[in-house]
């Protein structure tokens, strides 16, 4: 097996591509680094000079407003120059390959790429290409690749859980919904198991669970009520519109009935359980408004923490 492409020879973070394969101390270091960054947002001048003079390219081959915006804010708070490229609407349509695009941007002295791509593994291809073309000082952050990984989302979820629950080793966590197609769920599962969460549950219909998902270290439930019993953290997943009807699911109504989070189902979890959602939410499909806006939801703090976590990742990469 090839060496882990996201760590350098000293085992330090060179790219952030996936949470799988990241040692626990690096994950903890990212969360610790993010801690003081949450205060930057409270200041009159919300800026730190850590990335001054650096160029960060948001390279989005797939549309996203929220993730791109939070990366942009994070980079700007670190004083980087940020260039947003929606490649889905530009050069690749003219036949330019992914790696040609990267080479051109490297020639413009890019220091960091924040990459979102519809194909699993695309950020690895870029990282490997930078390696083979001898560009050790250019870093890649995976902002979501296909169904594979969304590591900064996983990390901000861990930050949120740590903020509200402190000790990972005492928790039962349930991840609910379309785990098959979810890069978020995969990153969450790896982060939770690496941080020592003793029980991670995966809840969903058989059509939306990946083959052999148990081997990732989760306990599978098909009955949401059963799976929610006694959990400390409820992590909901977004159900994409195109998957609501067809051969995976019969209808959004039936999905909501069996796998939507309502106050009544949430009552089966621990009384102080928190509810996370990576957004954007489909109210009335995977989550009821009463829960989304309820006291147990920590969905807006997730967004705030997300900026601090992305600042932490980018500053650690630039330093390394």
């Amino acid at each position: 097996m090839a060496k882990n492409p996201q760590l350098n020879a000293n085992g330090e973070l060179k790219h952030l591509l996936s949470i799988e394969g990241l040692p626990r101390d690096i994950i903890s270091a990212i969360l610790d680094t993010a801690e003081p960054f949450t205060e930057v947002a409270e200041r009159e001048v919300k800026k730190l000079p850590l990335l001054r003079g650096k160029s960060v390219f948001n390279l989005f081959f797939e549309n996203s407003t929220r993730t791109r915006t939070t990366f942009e804010i994070a980079a700007k708070r670190l004083s980087a120059d940020v260039i947003n490229l929606n490649v889905s609407t530009s050069s690749t349509n003219k036949g330019e390959t992914l790696l040609d695009t990267v080479d051109n941007l490297v020639a413009m002295q890019a220091d960091m790429f924040v990459v979102r791509h519809a194909s699993s593994g695309a950020p690895y291809l870029i990282a490997q290409h930078l390696e083979s073309t001898n560009r050790p000082n250019v870093h890649v952050v995976n902002a979501g690749d296909g169904r594979h990984a969304h590591p900064t989302q996983g990390l901000l979820d861990m930050y949120t859980i740590r903020h509200f629950k402190r000790d990972f080793t005492q928790l039962t966590v349930a991840i609910i919904g379309d785990i098959l197609h979810s890069r978020v769920a995969r990153s969450q599962i790896h982060a939770l198991t690496t941080l020592g969460v003793p029980e991670v549950r995966a809840i969903g219909p058989k059509t939306l669970l990946p083959t052999d998902v148990e081997r990732l270290g989760v306990r599978v439930f098909h009955d949401m009520r059963e799976g929610l019993k006694g959990v400390d953290v409820v992590m909901m997943l977004r159900l994409q519109n195109e998957r609501m009807t067809g051969s995976l699911l019969p209808s959004p109504q039936e999905y909501f009935k069996f796998f939507g989070l309502t106050e009544e189902k949430l009552a089966l979890a621990k009384p102080d359980a928190i509810v996370l959602h990576p957004g954007p939410m489909n109210r009335g499909v995977e989550i009821d408004s009463a829960v989304a806006d309820g006291v147990q939801a920590v969905i807006l703090p997730q967004v705030t923490f997300g900026i601090a976590v992305r600042m932490a990742v980018m500053s650690m990469l630039a330093r390394g």
Partner: peptide, 10 residues
């Protein structure tokens, strides 16, 4: 279709 594809999101 197995553990590897599930991990890699393929």
């Amino acid at each position: 279709d197995g553990e590897v594809a599930s991990r890699l999101g393929l």
